[in-house]
Each structure stands twice: as C-alpha cells, then as structure tokens.
Design a binder for these strands. Structure first.
Lengths: 338, 338
DNA sequence: GTGAAAGCGCTAACAC
DNA sequence: GTGTTAGCGCTTTCAC
C-alpha cells in the first residue's frame, strides 16, 4: 500500500496519468465528472500524490520556517500562534527552529533551508556582531525573509516590531511621574535591535525630565536566571535604584525574586515595569506593570507580509519597518505611594 | 544563481555528476581529495543539492511533525523545546501544527502529512470521540507516531505521559490532610486521556479517606476563559467547595480570578492545587501549589522513541506507555490554616 | 575511484 | 477534455 502513484490510479480508471495529475491540481482543463471519479478512487485506495516529486517539478515547498532565539516566554509562543494561523489558512506548512541565541546556530539553520526546503522565512534575529553573511544565501536563492521583534538593521527587508522606543519612553515617564529619581534600565544586549531601541526611549524620557543618565543604573546582563539574578542583586545593593524598567520579562521576574530575598518592597521601595506578554500579571504579587506587545498580531502581520512577497515575484528589497502599538498596563508594581 | 545543479558543479570540476553526488552523501566510494575539492567548490559558488530531488529519490524527508491542541501554556512550549532539541541533534527538521482542540483539524493535518512530507509524528491528541480513522493513513504509509501527554487509547503505539493518576491522588490527599472536606475537581474533558486519569486519582484519594464522590463537585467545563469563569463562579457559589484540584492550569487561573472577585480567600476559605508547568508560581498571590509535569523531559523522551522507531524498521505496534514522574510543589494556595 | 544510464513520481507543454 | 512526452535534479546500480 505504500507506493501508489498516479500511474496506478490512472490504470485503475482507464485514464492517463496527466488527467489524474490534473485532478489533484486546480486545473480547469478537466471534466468535473472525471475529476470527481479520480478523487473518489484516490480516497478509496488512500492515495495522495507524492510530495517530493511534485515539489521537484514545481520548485515549491509550500513551507515556511520560523526561526527564533528562544522558547522561554509568552511573546514567542503568541507570535508563533499568529504565524501558524496565517500559514495554515494559506495551506502552507510551518517549520520551527530555535537558535538558543547563537548566531552560529542561526547560520547553520539558514544554510539547511537554502536548498528548496522553504519558500520563505520569518525570523527574530539571534545575534549581534556584523557578520550576517549567512543571509546572503537567501538572497541568492530568492527566499524572502521577514523579521519580527528583533532584526539586523543592515539587512534590507520588512521588519515588524512594536513601538518600543515610544513605549519605553512612556514607561520611564510613568516611573518618573510616580516619584522615581533613580531609574535603572535592565537589558540583555544594549547594542542591538530591541535592547538598543528600548534604551533610546528610556534615555529620551530621562532627558526630558532633566535626569542625567547614570551608567551605573544601566545593567547589561544575561539570559540565564542564575547569572542575571546576581547581577541584579548587586545593582540593587550598590546603585540603589528606586525604579526599574526591564527590557524583557525574564529580568523583571528575577528582579521580583531578588527584591523579595533582599527585603526590598515593591512598589514602596522600588517601582517596576517591564516589557512582557505574560497574561497573568494581575495575579502576581504585586500585580506587575507591563508594556504588552501585540505578539499574536505581530506574528500575523509578519506572516502576511511574507505571503505577499511570496505571491508577487517582487522582492522585499527596501528596508521597511512596520510598527504595531503596544499597550501600557499600569498595575501595583509601579504604583505611586501617597 | 538560482538553479545550480550537481551537473554544473561537475562541469566546473571536470567530473561526472555521480561523483559530485557521492561527495554530498556519506559515500566511502570516493577519493577524500576529490570530495574535498567538490565541497570547496560548492561552498564557493553557494551550491547545495536540491532537496526535493534527493527526497524523491530516497523517499525520506528528514522531517517530523509536532501536532498539539493548543499553544496556550508553558507545558507545550516546554515540550516542544525538548522535542526540537532532539530533532535538531539528529539533523532532522520539525514541522509544527496546532489543532485548536478540533479533531477535524487534526485529521486534515494528518492527511496532509501522509504523502511523504514527514518521516514520523509526535502528537498530543486533540479529540474525544471514537473516530480515529485518520490515523490509519499513517499506518498505511508506515509513518510512526508517538503520543505525549494526551493519547487515544485505541491506537497501539508509544505514549509518553506523566504519572498523573498518582500525582492526582497525592494532590487530593494533600488537600484532605490540610483540612478540606469538599474538594472539587475541575476538568475540560473528564472522559478521555488526562482528564479521565487525573479524575481517577482524585476519586481514589476520596475513597481512601471515605469521602463520597459528589457529582456536584466535579465541574466539566471548557477552555475559553470567558466561559469557564462563569462555570467556576457558579460552582463556588452553589457547591461551596473548600478545596479545588484543577486538572489544567487555565482552570486554576480562572479560579484565582473568580475567588478574588467573589471575596473568597485562598487558602483560608478555599485551597487550590493544579497541574501546571508555570515557572513563576512562587510569585503569584497566593503562591500556587502545583503538580509540575516534566514537560521538557517528556518532549525529549517522546522524540527519542520516535527516532528509535525511525532508525530500525520495527514498527511501534504494541501499546506502550512511558510514565515520567511529576513534582508536587506545595505552596501557599493549599496551605493549612492553623 | 569514477562514469554512464536508468528512473524516483510528478507536471506542463504540446498535440489531438 | 484527454493523452503523449520530455524532463525537474538527484541517487544508485552497474560497468570499467
């Protein structure tokens, strides 16, 4: 039963294989009745056309890839959900890859996709550095790529992101208005993409309120909880901030844990706000103020752009940034104590 | 640059295409020097062998699929992370599909995979009902499937899951020992797979302590927060439980919100424990007692079994259940008030 | 160790 | 509306 072909099916029905082939494509060059007979028989004997043969013929895979740096937070699962929705509605398939924030992994994944495996790529960039040459392979093979959330700004393509600079500005301003004088900014990578943009908004707010930027209050730390926890503990002890803007959720979570351990009360002694897509911030103790990015929407929009460029042979050559609004949700963790 | 073939490469090097082909397989029928020359040239001109042609020839896709009912919770993202890790280490690719708990979606996905697209499938079952005939297609096509977390027990294959009956028993016993007399069980689907098994453990514990099973205390509700919230509200008002075992995280979250709204204090008036993989239960208010399933591990183990069956032509014909231990983490939400 | 040639299963001209 | 036929790019016998 394993290797049926259109020839077997054709033989069973006294037709030629081209007719059978037409039945499976959306060819209009076929008698609807014939088509129905063919499809019925296919159903009966459990046949469906071999994918690889078809793909080889038409040089299409009906598949896209999602490449993300990690799987740790709600942002990416929501974004993937949005992407998967669009992909499925288009009858496409979705490959998923996780780089663990390693550019080498990203490069090797990209290489493994440049041989026809996918028709397009959605990626949240993993790396820093300037060597993005692995992406040239995609251009050579006419595989469009759309970035979401994290990009490389030397690559000319579509980039879908939140209004991070503005949101960061507003979040910082909110802390200032609630009485904070020494606001720290926690970040994983202050030099690229979201880490940088969010810092820009933070600095702009400080400037507006004539608060000098204090490098001691900018904590450049890492992903691993065990490590960033200690960095944050030092920050709280040495720099004694009274407010914190965390550029990613994980750093806010670590902050809450450290504050608890150190006996620092949130929001009384320390006000906290962070970028996060967590959907239970209201149940935390204290309830957590967040900049909530439209993750699901972002996935949908990014996927939609990708499919547009797949539909028309026009390439995504110009740098184009699509900005989606985040929501600022102020809760207890940043509340003014009166 | 787009359509290079091994023939082009062969021409450039004065070789035949068969030799070039051998360089890309792990053939030992080739001079290492020749192979090196070929690979170097390939690198230089950015060539890699067309995947579809190769797949067609060897009838392999080096791809597996993950099919899950939803993307909403940490359990699945952790499990996928575990799967992806194994898959990548084997040089395989991972397709991902979400069914939204609809068996029809599951069936159509399975159909779209039965034509060579994947070599194997990892699935957490979506459905109830008894029509699992869509899985026959897989058998016909020799595509192995391994279940994780949720299965169909009429399908003979490997199933990797947590020790849910025992964990459920222990969680219920814990509530009883902490003084609960009227323990409710919240579930999405009490008749199948995890919903049923977890109820079994709950009932066994009640029986052990001579507490009669009260149907009024078993709430069979749905996934959508807007709907289950109202069901839970009614339960709390009418049946007045003093303890709750939630079979899935989402129902515990809804319970916390309803309790807050209704002025029911947790754990004073109502003790709560649930199955969950959330990693910030310590930061909730109150901190949440959970049965934490080894999601990451479960993904890894399930994937490992799948690859075993891919390696040897032996089929996964016998029903085989692999049980992994969960951790019971008792926190404030179920604490005895003395 | 390398080359020639057949063919994996399908699609798309082109003819009728 | 249907059949014939020439490949898509690769792998793999089989010769040498």
């Amino acid at each position: 039963m394993s290797q049926l072909t259109i020839i077997d099916l054709a033989a069973k029905l006294g037709l030629s294989k081209s007719t059978v082939s037409r039945a499976f494509r959306n060819s209009n060059d076929i008698n609807p009745e014939t088509k129905a007979r063919i499809l019925a028989m296919a159903e009966e004997i459990g046949f469906s056309p071999n994918l690889h043969a078809s793909n080889l013929r038409v040089s299409k895979s009906q598949t896209i890839a999602i490449i993300i740096p990690e799987f740790g937070n709600k942002f990416f699962s929501q974004a993937i959900k949005g992407i998967e929705l669009v992909t499925r509605s288009k009858g496409y398939h979705t490959l998923i890859y996780v780089t663990d924030h390693q550019v080498q992994n990203e490069a090797s994944i990209i290489r493994s996709l440049s041989n026809g495996r996918v028709d397009g790529i959605l990626m949240s960039a993993s790396g820093e550095g300037n060597d993005h040459s692995h992406l040239n392979l995609l251009k050579d093979n006419n595989i469009p790529i759309v970035f979401f959330d994290r990009n490389y700004d030397d690559i000319n393509t579509v980039y879908v992101t939140g209004n991070d600079e503005e949101a960061s500005f507003l979040a910082t301003e909110h802390l200032i208005k609630n009485g904070c004088k020494r606001i720290a900014y926690l970040v994983i990578n202050p030099n690229i993409s979201i880490g940088k943009v969010r810092m820009d908004g933070y600095k702009r707010a400080l400037k507006k309120y004539k608060i000098p930027v204090d490098d001691q209050l900018v904590l450049d730390t890492v992903n691993q909880a065990e490590l960033n926890t200690e960095d944050i503990r030092e920050l709280l002890r040495d720099a004694k901030p009274d407010g914190i803007l965390a550029s990613v959720e994980r750093l806010a979570i670590s902050t809450l844990r450290v504050a608890k351990e150190e006996g620092i009360a949130v929001p009384e002694d320390l006000k906290l706000i962070c970028f996060s897509c967590l959907d239970i911030t209201d149940l935390l103790n204290p309830s957590l103020s967040v900049v909530k990015q439209p993750a699901f929407e972002m996935g949908k929009v990014a996927a939609t752009y990708l499919f547009e460029s797949l539909a028309k042979p026009v390439k995504l050559e110009e740098q184009q940034t699509i900005i989606l609004d985040s929501s600022l949700i102020y809760q207890d963790s940043s509340k003014k104590i009166s």
